[in-house]
Amino acid sequence: MKRLGLYGLLLLTSHFVMADENSFTGEVYVNPEQYQGDPPISGKMAADTCSACHGTQGRIFNEIFPPLAGLPKATFIKMMMDFKTGKRPSFIMNNIARTYTQQEIERMADYFSRQSAKPWFVKSEKKA
């Protein structure tokens, strides 16, 4: 708790929706569990929101963003849940993990565990 500091406190109060005097800098957080009754978002649909950083099908290697493809289901779920609860502090991933429901995280884990762990093929052309 002490280690997480102020930000940890913020993570723990997971139900808040804050309004701000300025709509451009205000913070909005709706607990995703509120959407549990909605039609389920598929593992692929949720996982595709990761690929801009983690590569197509989670297959970018050796970058700041680690590859997700081929991760054992349990490993992925544990990492994401630790990010979500704030147990594993991160500059970027805590807020991202909090956007998904636990079921969505499990479906993403299922999707990524079924992807080839090989790097997305090496680019054959170098720009224009």
């Binding site: 680690p66 590859p67 990492m79 594993r88 502090p89 991160s90 500059f91």
Partner: peptide, 21 residues
Amino acid sequence: DAKAYCATCHGDKGVAPSRNT
């Protein structure tokens, strides 16, 4: 270690949680 969020990649007390780091 806490301030630089080393644990995100290098794990709690420096024990890495993934093969990458």
